[in-house]
């Protein structure tokens, strides 16, 4: 299919990789404040972005360690009781992931994101179970409502820059949508600039699913168990090449 801008419907699997890479990581407060600058990188977010609109009103992204999934915990590695964190609340940047140290730098209390992969590793701000909150669309309804676009069911060869601004996701399984119906298979890449991408979301489904993974960060590198997911959703005018 010709490279260009398309309305794209993404499966829960795609919702997962998007929330993890383009929202979860850049909302880690130690990144935002430069501590990971030489390794995992920094962030397109700044302290001043808190309270500002960075996504459409349909987008709420939550990181919740209290869900009994692969990223579950009730108390973080610094003894802070866990609770859900609304990173983006109806499009507005609402909360960063912090440990005690980085919360103190900005005059706040830790929101229990301090995790360490082993007893002798330092606790640093990490994700747990991160997801795009469900909306009120049936997933099939989103496809039926799309005149001409692409449905992406699964991805391959993804990567993103170290400020988490420019993501690129290979389409492993995708289909052309014509007049609300899935047609022939399609391959290609989704190019997603994080803020523009989340600002273009106009429909979010009910079918929340979580996927497990091991998230890497830190020096020495610490892999911690996480889940990431969401429901089927649609973003308008996305560059597909």
């Amino acid at each position: 299919m010709k490279p260009g801008l398309y309305d794209v419907v993404f499966s829960p699997e795609l919702a997962g990789i998007f929330v993890h890479e383009s929202v979860g990581h850049p909302f880690e407060l130690d990144r935002i404040m430069g501590r990971e600058g030489a390794e995992a990188g920094e962030s397109y977010m700044s302290l001043e972005d808190l309270g500002k609109r960075i996504a459409s009103e349909h987008v709420t992204i939550i990181d919740d360690p209290t869900i009994e999934a692969y990223g579950f915990y009730l108390v973080d590695e610094e003894g802070v009781p866990a609770r859900p964190r609304r990173l983006i609340d109806r499009g507005v940047a609402s909360e960063f992931l912090s440990n005690r140290e980085y919360a103190a730098y900005v005059g706040r209390l830790s929101n229990a994101a301090a995790r360490a992969s082993e007893f002798d590793k330092e606790p640093i701000p990490r994700m747990s179970n991160t997801y795009l909150a469900p909306g009120d669309w049936d997933p099939e309804e989103i496809i039926r409502d799309t005149r001409r676009g692409i449905y992406v069911a699964s991805y391959t060869e993804w990567n993103i820059d170290d400020r988490r601004e420019y993501g690129r996701y290979g389409i492993l399984e995708g289909y052309v949508i014509e007049d609300g119906e899935l047609k022939e298979p399609v391959l290609g890449f989704i190019e997603a600039e994080s803020r523009a991408f989340w600002s273009s979301v106009d429909a979010v489904g009910k079918d929340l699913k979580l996927y497990i993974g091991t998230c890497g960060k830190g020096n020495p590198s610490q892999g911690v168990p996480v889940t990431f997911g969401g429901p089927t959703f649609r973003a308008r005018g996305i560059r597909v090449v």
């Binding site: 990188g41 060869e157 993804w158 990567n159 820059d161 170290d162 420019y166 690129r168 290979g170």
Partner: peptide, 17 residues
Amino acid sequence: YTRFQNIREGVFSTVGR
């Protein structure tokens, strides 16, 4: 962030930093 589509064909991308 080097990732692969196909190792046998050596198809990859890596992000400039």
